[in-house]
Write a protein that binds this DNA or RNA. Structure first.
Length: 252
DNA sequence: ATGTCCGTAACCTACGGA
C-alpha cells in the first residue's frame, strides 16, 4: 500500500499538478491539506474519473483537508473537537484509520494563534490517546513544527520563531508518545528530508527548507514499511505547491 | 529578513495569510 501526505496550497490552483502526480505515482491513499475550497468546488467527479473516492472538509478561502482513496472511505469525521476551522478529517478504508491534519501555523510566539496551535495539538493528542488500539492508524499532514534542529536548514535563523519552539516540539512529541512512529525518520536518522521551502528568496534552489510534513503510524504499520521518501520533483516545475509530498510504502 | 504565491473583494490593485 502506498500512502502520501501533501499540502497542495489550493487544490484549485494545484489541480493540474495533482492530477499529473496521481497518475504518475498511483498512491492508494492521499492525505491532503490546504484545499482552500468549499465542498461545492471540490473535484469529486474528476477524482472519481481517476479512480479515487474522496472525503473533504472544506472551508473556502483558507484551510480545508481531504482524503483521496482508491477504495471506498467510511466513517468520516470532519473537524477536531469544537474547532471552527477546517483542519482535520479522518476516515477508514481497508481496515485502516487515516487522519489528515493541517495544524495551525502559530504566526508568532506572542500571537493568540500560537496558543490556538498548542491547544489544537493537545486536542489531537487526546483523540489519539482515546483511539481504538485494535485499529491500525496513520496520522499525516502539515504539522507546522520542525521536530528537531535537523529538520531546519539553519536553526540560528529560527531563534525566537514558531515551528521550532520548545512547547511546539513538546506538543508534537506528545503525539508520538501515544505510540506512533515518525515514518520520515524510520530509516533516516541523519538526512534533513525537508518537505517545505518558502516561495520567496529562491529558498528551494538554496536548500532553505523545513521538515514540517509528516506521516505517523502505529507499530503494526511501521513494522511493514519498506520505503519512505519526500518527492522533491513535485516542488519543481510550473506552479508547484510550496510543500513536497511525503510518500510511504508498506505491505498490507 | 523576506526577492512569492493564493484567494478574495473589487475592479486592472491591495490585502491577509502563509
Amino acid at each position: 500500500m502506498k500512502v502520501a501526505t501533501w499540502n497542495v496550497n489550493s487544490l484549485t490552483a494545484r489541480w493540474p499538478r495533482v492530477q499529473e502526480w496521481l497518475t504518475l505515482h498511483e498512491p492508494d491513499v492521499v492525505l491532503v491539506q490546504e484545499t482552500k475550497q468549499t465542498d461545492e468546488k471540490f473535484p469529486f467527479a474528476a477524482l472519481a474519473a481517476l479512480g479515487y473516492d474522496a472525503a473533504h472538509h472544506g472551508q473556502g478561502r483558507w484551510n480545508g483537508v481531504a482524503i483521496f482513496s482508491r477504495t471506498e472511505l467510511s466513517d468520516v469525521q470532519r473537524g477536531l473537537g469544537d474547532d471552527v476551522e477546517a483542519r482535520f478529517i479522518a476516515a477508514t478504508c481497508r481496515g485502516l484509520r487515516f487522519h489528515s491534519c493541517y495544524v495551525p501555523n502559530g504566526r508568532a510566539l506572542d500571537d493568540p494563534h500560537y496558543d490556538y496551535k498548542l491547544r489544537w495539538l493537545e486536542s489531537l493528542r487526546v483523540l489519539l490517546v482515546e483511539r481504538d488500539r485494535a485499529q491500525p492508524l496513520i496520522v499525516g499532514g502539515d504539522f507546522n513544527v520542525a521536530l528537531s534542529d535537523l529538520d531546519v536548514y539553519d536553526p540560528s535563523a529560527f531563534v525566537g520563531a514558531t515551528h521550532v519552539s520548545a512547547p511546539e516540539r513538546a506538543a508534537f512529541r506528545a503525539l508520538l508518545d501515544t505510540d506512533l512512529v515518525d515514518l520520515g525518520r524510520l530509516d533516516n536518522a541523519d538526512e534533513p528530508a525537508f518537505t517545505w521551502w518558502d516561495y520567496r528568496n529562491g529558498s528551494f534552489r538554496r536548500g532553505w527548507g523545513l521538515r514540517i510534513d509528516y506521516l505517523l503510524a502505529d507499530a503494526a504499520i511501521a513494522s511493514r514499511v519498506s520505503e519512505v521518501r519526500v518527492d522533491r520533483v513535485a516542488r519543481k516545475g510550473e506552479k508547484p505547491s510550496d510543500h513536497a509530498p511525503v510518500l510511504a510504502q508498506f505491505d498490507w
